[in-house]
Simulated scan of single mutants.
Amino acid sequence: MSGDGGGTGNTAYGRKAFRRSTAHFTDRITADGRDGWPVEAGRYRLVVSRACPWASRAVISRRLLGLEDALSLAIADPLQDDRSWRFTLDPDGRDPVLGIRYLSEAYDRRETGYPGGVSVPAIVDVPSGKLVTNDYQRITLDFATEWTALHRDGAPDLYPQALRDEIDEVTAEVYEDVNNGVYRAGFATGQEEYEAACAAVFRRLELLARRLERQRYLVGDTITEADIRLFTTLVRFDAVYHGHFKCNRWKLTENRVLWGYVRDLYQTPGFGDTVDFDHIKRHYYQVHTGINPTGVVPLGPDLSGWLTPHHREELGGRPFGDGTPPGPVRAGEEVPARGRP
C-alpha cells in the first residue's frame, strides 16, 4: 500500500483512469530456495500497515497458519510522509529488528534509486536488511504452500489443491471489481469513470451475496485464501469506502448476507483480532489529501455491531477444516483498544 494511491504496488491517478501497477520485486521465498531465498525460521521480517487491505491479507494468513514464531512482524505508522512508511510506533522511531526509520531504506538496499513506490506488505531479509519481495498477490499463497514446514500444528489448508482453480477464478473477479474496484471509484477524476467503477463494485457484491446466501464460505466448506481476500475489503467498506471512496449505493450493514458473512469472519480467531479501525480510518482520511483535503477523520460508523450474532453457522461449514483455531494473539501484536469495537 503506497501513499499516493492507497494500495500495494505503484499506483497512478490523475486525469487518466486509476491503475495499479504490478509488484516490482517478485522474488519468492520457497521451500527449495530456488530464487535464492529459502524458507528459514527467523530470517525474514514482514512489514505491514494495519490500515492496508493488501498487507492485512498477509497478517491474517500469518496468524491463521501460526507463522508468528518463524516470521516476525513490523507494524508501520498508518500515516506516511514523503519518505514512505515509517516506524514511528516503535521506540526512537526505528524498527527494533531492522534498525531503520523508513521502509524505503530496505528498498534502497535492494535496488539503489528504485523509482517506484514503497509498498506494503513487504518481506525483508533481516541479515542483509534488503527487501525480498513486495508481491502482495503471491506472498499469502506462498505462506500457504511453501512455508508448510513451519506451520503450526492444526494449521488450516488455505489453498487446497483440489479447489485452486475455483479459488483463482473467484479471487480474480473479487480483485477486479471489489478489491481494486473501490480504488478505481475513489480515485476517479471523471463522472463516467466513477460511475462505471462504482456500478461494477456493487454488481459484484450482489453476485457474491447470492453465492454466500447458500454457503458459509466462498469456496468449499472451509476458510480459504478467497475469504481472506474478500474480507480485507469488506471490513473496511462502511468505515472508509462507503464515504471516502463514494461507494455509497448501500452500506454493508444494509446487506443481510454480506454483513452476516463479514461478521462471521471478523469473529473468527485470526481475522478480527488483526483489524485496527483506528489505523484504517486515520490512514485513508488523512493520507489521501486529494480526496479529503481537510484531513478530518469522521467519528463513525458505530463499531458495536461487529460483535453481534451472525447465525452463519446454520449454513454448516468448518472454519478450519480438519485443523484448529489459532491461539491467542502474540504478545506485542494486539490491536489497541481504540482500534476495536
Rank of each mutant, 00 (worst) to 15 (best):
M1A: 15
G5N: 08
F18R: 01
R19K: 12
R20G: 07
S21V: 14
S21D: 15
F25T: 06
T30L: 11
A31L: 12
D32G: 13
V39Q: 03
R45E: 09
R45A: 03
R50K: 11
A51W: 04
C52E: 06
R63D: 09
R63P: 10
L65G: 04
L65K: 00
D69R: 06
Q80F: 08
R83A: 01
R83M: 13
S84F: 15
F87H: 06
F87R: 03
D92Q: 11
G93P: 09
V97C: 12
G99M: 06
G99L: 07
S104D: 07
D108K: 05
G116D: 11
V120S: 03
A122D: 11
V124K: 03
D125N: 08
S128A: 03
G129D: 01
T133N: 09
T133F: 08
D135I: 00
T140V: 10
T140L: 10
D142E: 07
A149H: 13
Q161C: 05
I167H: 04
E169I: 00
E169W: 02
T171Y: 06
A172Q: 11
Y175F: 15
Y175W: 15
V178L: 02
V182P: 10
A188Y: 04
A188H: 06
T189L: 10
G190N: 10
Q191K: 13
A196M: 13
A197H: 04
C198I: 06
F202M: 10
R203L: 15
A209I: 08
Y217M: 01
Y217C: 01
D221M: 00
D221E: 11
A226T: 05
I228D: 00
I228A: 02
L230Y: 00
F231N: 00
L234M: 13
R236Y: 12
V240P: 00
Y241A: 09
H242W: 08
G243Y: 04
F245E: 14
F245N: 10
T253I: 14
R263V: 05
Q267L: 04
T268Y: 09
F271K: 00
I280E: 02
Y285V: 04
V287M: 09
N292S: 02
W306R: 07
W306N: 13
T308F: 07
H311Q: 14
H311V: 09
E313H: 06
G316Q: 11
G316C: 05
P319V: 01
G323S: 04
G323T: 01
P328I: 01
R330D: 14
V335T: 02
